[in-house]
Design a protein around this nucleic acid. Sequence first.
DNA 1: CGCGGGATTGACT
DNA 2: GTCAATCCCGCGT
Length: 190
Amino acid sequence: MLAVMKLERDFFAQPTLQVARQILGTRLIFNGPNGLRSGIITETEAYIGPEDKASHASRGRTPRTEPMFGPPGLTYVYLIYGMYHCLNIVTEAEGYPAAILIRGLVTTPTSFEDELHLNGPGKVCRWLGINRSHNQIDATGDILYFEKITNEITLNLGIIKTGPRIGVDYAGVWAAKPWRFYLANRTQNG
DNA sequence: CGCGGGATTGACT
DNA sequence: GTCAATCCCGCGT
């Protein structure tokens, strides 16, 4: 039994917590500077609305945060600590700033590399070849998209765990919200 | 225009 | 456990 279904824009238009949870176990496909690369999503975080002090968008609509206010399915890629990139996919209705951060992947083996467990948003972008040139592109297009795969494996992904988001201790009560989602038996940092 | 700090990572004690 | 790398951007001057 096998079924593959591309995630369309309406998937990302759903409530962000739902998107963050349901995208676990789907396959990300990216045809970028490192060639065609893909992997199974194992870890995400949700950033939701203008009040969320952990979200860049909590400081308003600026050139940097503009993509977060864009249509669902858009990418928001930013540089962090001067050396790593983070990939987000915008969620909910256009005009409402929300997105999910892709924090973990189990990579699809290539001809020259075995399966890797990438834990951390910087490692994910480095391996995929995501950089700022991929900011504000369509994550439901041909270069970058997601597939929901239905097979014996994805029907038994195991328990989805939740916890506080990483690295946002400055965000007060918002830091404590359990808006990190991960597949317990596929993820380190469990 | 300068300053401070970050949705991270890896190296080191 | 601690800490530096490195640069963009938001904010105050």
